[in-house]
């Protein structure tokens, strides 16, 4: 009784014009997310933060009486000291203060909210009954969340670079352990730093996305991912764990500092990239596996 029907209308019984691969186009999903106040606020904050920092430096008065302690004076404090010595350094400082927590929260927000918010609105079931194939839905959500995250990071860096250059001028990038980097080379390094940060944030993205698929509460997904990140960071501080620490997803989160030295120290970046890709892939695969099988009860 089961027969293959030759193309009479559509073979799969779909309505005319329906094609599974064309459902939930990235453009449509991008518009759905971009129209959200949350997205607009986050992106707006990314533009505002460098300006706020700049204003804080202005208000705080000139610290230039102090001799910068140089690259040697401490890798961290030197970044702060050098923040006002050119647009590139200001950008680097902005990235430095954002990388540890702000960007983590932003990425967790975009990815953790992706599916869970649809579930909490009740629109998930309508998308799936449209039908948007579940894989297709996850792909669209993932791509758009990644796009928004990348946009947020780029906005932050671009605003900092623009504002910093306008205020402090074009100067070599300092802050590495070796020589100053001429502006062109410095710009490349900043780009690489952003790239590595993005790769490192894949871990947060993966965990948040997995939680987003597992729970119907967007806040739970976002908060859970951030909490896990903090937990991993705390464990990484416990040196007694020895080589076990290198398995922690945040162990290599500071490896981008190696990009600032001359020559670049890429060994930790390579390991950090491997670690991030493994975690992110594992989380994404688990998210897929779960979402393709779960009952949608929201």
């Amino acid at each position: 009784m089961t027969t293959r029907v030759p193309a009479g209308g559509s073979v799969d019984g779909a309505a005319p014009g329906y094609h599974a691969g064309r459902t939930l186009p990235f453009r449509a999903e991008w518009r759905r997310q971009a129209s959200r106040r949350r997205t607009q606020l986050v992106l707006g904050f990314m533009v505002a933060l460098p300006l706020i920092i700049l204003a804080a430096f202005q208000l705080g008065g000139d610290d230039e009486g102090q001799e910068p302690s140089g690259p040697a004076g401490g890798r961290i404090s030197s970044l702060v000291d050098l923040a006002t010595s050119g647009g590139l350094n200001f950008t680097l400082f902005t990235i430095f203060v954002s990388a540890g927590f702000l960007l983590v929260v932003v990425v967790a927000l975009f990815f953790g909210d992706a599916v869970a918010s649809e579930a909490s609105w009740g629109s998930l079931r309508y998308l799936l009954a449209a039908p948007v194939p579940r894989s297709r839905l996850l792909t669209a959500k993932l791509v758009v969340a990644a796009g928004h995250s990348a946009l947020a990071i780029l906005l932050l860096a671009a605003t900092a670079l623009l504002a910093g250059t306008l205020r402090y001028g074009v100067h070599p990038l300092r802050g590495g352990i070796a020589a100053d980097l001429p502006p062109g080379e410095g710009l490349v390094r900043i780009g690489l730093v952003l790239g590595y940060l993005a790769v490192g944030l894949l871990v947060v993205a993966g965990v948040a996305f997995l939680f987003s698929v597992l729970t119907d509460a967007p806040l739970g997904a976002v908060g859970g991912a951030v909490l896990l990140y903090i937990l991993s960071s705390i464990l990484d501080q416990i040196t007694a764990l020895g080589s076990l620490r290198s398995l922690l997803p945040t162990h290599y989160s500071d490896a981008w500092l190696g990009l600032l030295s001359t020559p670049m120290q890429v060994d930790d970046l390579v390991k950090g990239t491997i670690s991030a890709l493994c975690y992110a892939t594992g989380c994404a695969a688990l998210a897929w596996w779960r979402f393709l099988r779960r009952d949608i009860v929201s």
Binding site: S10, D12, G13, A14, A15, A20, R125, L128, P131, R134
Partner: peptide
């Protein structure tokens, strides 16, 4: 789940 034939179905479920 997600069968293309669902495109011929319009739905209101649970609000």
């Amino acid at each position: 789940p997600g069968a293309p034939v669902l495109s011929r179905v319009g739905a209101l479920v649970e609000g």
